[in-house]
């Protein structure tokens, strides 16, 4: 059956898979950081990603700030929105069952998406690519911008991983993940650290949104479909595992691309099939260590 599948198609889909995987990795990374430290399943992650794209669009259209500026400003703006959300709706729920914070972020999605649709309508809005043109790789035409997305998101993922694994701040985060009250007894303002961690994870989602704006249409619902895929990625990678989230993100993107080549009808299903198999074989996630399981 492989005879009629050209190498061009295969490589092309692999590349598309890699680009999608870049978004999956960046978003699930933020979700895993948030879950790991404050045990909030941030259902609003997709909506915050969407806000990142809209902030970039508004910066461009109303203030004339180009993409490269938005790349820095939008994550900060979205992160600040995240900080406000944490203080108002998540902090009061901190000592309750984690299901409540999940539901609170879900309710926030209804409000955020509703307001955005009210203001901007449901149709997608275009955002011009800051890097027009591309290069012919022989097997496919690679737009410069997509290449930039792959490289940049990889850098962001690695930098974030290094931040958490190799720095002092990272060791505070890891320790607070295990025993927040002990870390606080060392004189560290853990409640503030939790709020800022949420803001950071949300900022990553916003950054993902800026990256996505020139590729996908900017629309209020652009995050909601992605959200469920991201959830699956985090489940497969092991809840709260940073490295697991990054690797699974890329893996899922690539597998999705390959399914499009060999069995296009099933490309939407592939992720969930992988998730179910992974749950049966490795219930704690592909990349979880025995100690991080709960």
């Amino acid at each position: 059956m492989f005879d009629h599948i050209s190498i061009q198609l295969l490589l092309g889909q692999l590349l598309i898979g890699l680009i999608n995987g870049s978004f999956y990795a960046m978003l699930s990374l933020g979700l895993a950081i948030i879950f790991g430290l404050i045990h909030v399943v941030n259902f609003a992650h997709g909506a915050q990603y969407m806000l990142g794209a809209f902030v970039a669009l508004l910066l461009l259209n109303h203030l004339g700030i180009p993409y490269w500026g938005a790349l820095f400003i939008a994550p900060v703006v979205v992160g600040a929105i995240g900080y406000a959300m944490e203080r108002t709706i998540l902090k009061p729920l901190r000592n309750l069952d984690h299901l409540y914070s999940l539901l609170a972020t879900f309710a926030a999605v209804l409000i955020i998406e509703g307001l955005m649709r009210l203001e901007f309508g449901s149709t997608g809005l275009p955002y011009a690519s800051p890097l027009p043109g591309g290069i012919n790789l022989g097997f496919m035409f690679l737009p410069w911008y997509r290449g930039w997305v792959v490289v940049f998101s990889l850098v962001v993922c690695i930098a974030t991983w290094l931040l958490i694994e190799k720095t002092k701040l990272g060791s505070y985060l890891r320790a607070a993940n295990e025993r927040p009250e002990i870390v606080e007894s060392f004189g560290i303002n853990v409640p503030l650290m939790m709020s800022l961690t949420y803001a950071f994870g949300v900022g990553l989602a916003g950054l993902g949104g800026v990256l996505a704006a020139p590729i996908y249409q900017v629309s209020p619902s652009m995050g909601s479909n992605l959200m469920i895929v991201i959830f699956a990625v985090v489940v497969i990678g092991g809840m709260g595992s940073i490295l697991g989230a990054i690797l699974t993100g890329y893996l899922i993107g690539i597998v999705e691309g390959l399914t499009k080549v060999f069995y296009p009808e099933a490309s939407n299903l592939a992720i969930f099939v992988i998730m179910i198999i992974a749950l049966i074989l490795r219930p704690n996630g592909l990349f979880s260590s025995p100690e991080s399981s709960r």
Partner: peptide
């Protein structure tokens, strides 16, 4: 006071 303030 809160825990981290007490530590300080």
């Amino acid at each position: 006071k809160r825990t981290f303030q007490i530590a300080r």
